[in-house]
Design a protein around this nucleic acid. Sequence first.
DNA 1: TTGGTGATGTTT
DNA 2: AACATCACCAAA
Length: 207
Amino acid sequence: MLTALDREFYARDTIIVAKELLGKLIVREINNGLICAKIVETEAYIGDHDPASHSFGRITERNKIMYGPAGYAYVYFIYGNYYCFNAVTGNECEGNAVLIRAAEIIEGKELALGHRKLTSGSHEIANGPAKLCIALQIDKKFNGHNLTNEGELFVAAGEETKKSDIISTKRIGISKGTDLPYRFIVKGNPFVTKHRHNNFVSNSKNK
DNA sequence: TTGGTGATGTTT
DNA sequence: AACATCACCAAA
């Protein structure tokens, strides 16, 4: 039985949490089925001074979850069609979160393929934040969901990702805050979002 | 294999 | 009016 990560894991520096989420397992229980996915790509959104963050500016109906305690899901609707899944991190009232951008399906691949309306494939099931939400059936009903209980949706420890295997790049799909290297991927992993930034390799100089 | 574009509706 | 995206199609 998999155990959910506790709130202390999330209630730390957002950059550290974003890196350490690589390799962790998203566990999604749907009726009788189970999907388990290894996180391979994340992005950090840092409080109300990060111009790309939804928490930039003041507290609104949409972003208020980000200002709550760490360890809860922040799920938002985007581009009229899609959802994106974040974990709230850091200290309460700061407005930090980590966007989960891509994952490798470890278990329940057939189920995930069905959700994505695909008949085959593996790399492209969840190599993007909205694709991941479709594959795992995460929608706005999970906004504010507690990720530290073993329920329908939680995150559990997986394999450790070696610090030397973590690469940081610029974030994708935003027009502000593009200079910040707050996107983290597992080096050489084929399940990450297809993007030119994958080539601008810079080591993330971990302590 | 790459790049450009339209669909879609919530939020500000 | 902008938007933390994706699927599709055309060109090469």
